[in-house]
Design a protein around this nucleic acid. Structure first.
Lengths: 348, 348
DNA sequence: TCGATTTTTGAAAACGTTATCAGAGAACTC
DNA sequence: GAGTTCTCTGATAACGTTTTCAAAAATCGA
């Protein structure tokens, strides 16, 4: 401690000049450069007195290793990029959080790259910009068309993993069995006695969301009518408008929403228009948003384990980084969570 | 295009071997290394034919510049770290989003560093780990004690900006006038006729949240009784339990919650226990969460511009990076948003 | 005490880029 | 046509680390 204040004048002057390098430390400690490096990395043994002198010099100079130089010579990067179109939507942010937690445990850092413009050129440019950074690998959130496009723009030799709602080939992928989950929740509604299930979608991956595919499958399988799809935006307010509109249609008794936030909006819209959920209309969501449990009525939904999804994505990437070249997949089956927002239709 | 497939065999072998360097490009294009660099950076003019040959060689070899080497020699890093204790909470994630958007516009990337363990050593270790990366600067989210500790652990010579609920000295800071905003919303409740306002807090920055300070100020100023503070966690479910408990207390007519999610929980808890909001109890929040508008009753709250806060933090950091050494501050006054969750107390 | 072995050390090379500087032409000017 | 200026180009030197590799020092066994 005393040493620090003793040399504070020295430290101050350093602050304005260029930062201390390993050579400065070596000079002050009276040892060679590689010896300092050895103390830093612990790669080889250093005699106790030299080690102490080095440590003292480091403290005195306020030396910190230069990350760029380290990454350059060792060839080992500790940063992985997450490319996504969104960060604020629950599913995205929870997945990113899962990636970050898993990465941190292994000493990696996560850089967020948001790609907003879905034109092919924009995706290409975004990829090039990201690859200009010293990265170990890339995880692409492929919940929407932007992710698909980014994946296509990625050069072949960079380690990458995709995260999505359903498996596909050609790339390592952490995914969720969204189709099956969509089928399950729609079958549940049908089993309650609803003649069919209307569907409000969130902005979709390709032409069609996997949740939507599950919805359609279940309806066709049951021989139920397949109503027209109602598209919402990411904004829950769009759900409110849709709910108000659907309230006018007596034939609508069950609604499957692309996510819980939209479901909340739809419920609000229905209630505003005087319809009761679930007595008049059943509404279900997808994802199990933290507030879905708090909402009244509690929202029946599919519980997605986004943090787990993110963790699995990181593990797949790490396997690639460790030389495991094979395309690997990791899927999970999210469970149905029954709460109060869905029930049997009113007998008419 | 034809060239690409023509050389695909070449490219394939590259994929497994070490990636092409600028020297490889120079050799294939028949020019010198600096010329390739000039084509890449556009730093100086290159004759059209050489430029074309270089571009062709780059394409052929699938060459991409090495970010670490670039950062090392130029001394210019393009990554800024955001150190935070949370990423999933609305205020945090919205602020990070604001930082990311502003950073991206200026060609910077954002790496997220989550610091969970608030012991001093842990903070120190987290800081050292982050500084091992090639960073241009750091933004610390100082909404809670972790941020304060991280800020203390930061060495003096690295560009940094703090983001918080209220200004303080010694460091560049983007902030919100939380004290004033807290005062305003409590004064609003008092003006409706409530004898006092109870307060449910979220995990706080130091000993006391700035929102809490504002709450206390307004009560003391009005000569109202200052009730005991009720602490909640970040989880909205804790709000539900608190709401149920408060429902039993007839003297509670107005509740100021530390954020909107907790307010939603409290409202749910009160409703579950048979109390009506706002007829029996008024509940207000803080932040203007996207769902606060959707919730029924719509939540009266303070509209925080988190994305703007993040943007301002980045601008302050950028000023530092551009050599503006002065400690700068940027504050904003968030407005009250009146919805339906608060009203006059029931006459007894 | 001497040689053999082990440990510790430092000089020099390497990593892949950009910056500097001087030389070679080309293009002007008179 | 000679001198001057301008444009383009390449050799070489950084940048701050880690990695070799060989030399020096220390330790060990006899």
């Amino acid at each position: 401690m005393t040493e620090v204040s003793q040399y504070s004048g020295h430290t101050m002057s350093r602050a304005t000049a260029k930062p201390a390098s390993i050579a400065d430390v070596a000079r002050v400690a009276g040892v060679s450069v590689p010896t300092v490096s050895r103390v830093l990395t612990g790669a080889a043994k250093v005699s106790p007195d030299k080690r102490d002198r080095v440590l003292l010099a480091i403290d005195e100079l306020g030396y910190r290793p230069n990350g760029a130089a380290r990454a350059l010579v060792s060839g080992k990067q500790r940063i992985i990029a997450v490319m996504t179109s969104e960060t604020a939507i629950f599913g995205y942010s929870a997945t990113i959080q899962g990636i970050e937690t898993a990465a941190r445990a292994e000493g990696y850092f996560v850089v967020i790259s948001v790609v907003e413009n879905p034109t092919e050129d924009e995706a290409q440019r975004a990829v090039e910009l990201v690859l200009g950074q010293p990265l170990a690998g890339i995880i692409v959130l492929k919940f929407d068309p932007v992710g698909v496009r980014v994946l296509e723009a990625l050069p072949p030799d960079i380690p990458r993993v995709a995260v999505s709602g359903e498996v596909s080939d050609e790339v390592s992928q952490a995914s969720i069995e969204e189709v099956a989950a969509g089928e399950e929740i729609v079958r549940y509604l049908l089993s309650l006695g609803h003649p069919t299930v209307h569907h409000v979608t969130v902005p979709a991956s390709r032409d069609e969301d996997h949740r939507t595919t599950g919805w359609r499958n279940a309806l066709v399988e049951a021989g139920a009518e397949v109503p027209e799809i109602i598209p919402a935006t990411w904004d829950a307010s769009s759900g409110v408008r849709i709910g108000r509109r659907l309230a006018a249609d007596d034939s609508v008794t069950a609604i499957f929403c692309g996510n819980d936030e939209i479901a909340m909006g739809v419920i609000t819209g229905l209630s505003d228009a005087g319809r009761n959920v679930p007595a008049d209309v059943s509404v279900v969501g997808f994802d199990d948003h933290p507030l879905a449990r708090i909402w009244r009525p509690g929202i029946t939904t599919i519980a997605q384990d986004f943090p787990g999804l993110g963790r699995r994505a990181f593990e797949l990437l790490q396997a690639q980084l460790d030389g495991d070249a094979a395309v690997a997949r990791s899927t999970s089956r999210p469970p149905l969570v029954v709460r109060e927002s869905a029930g049997p239709p009113r007998v008419r």
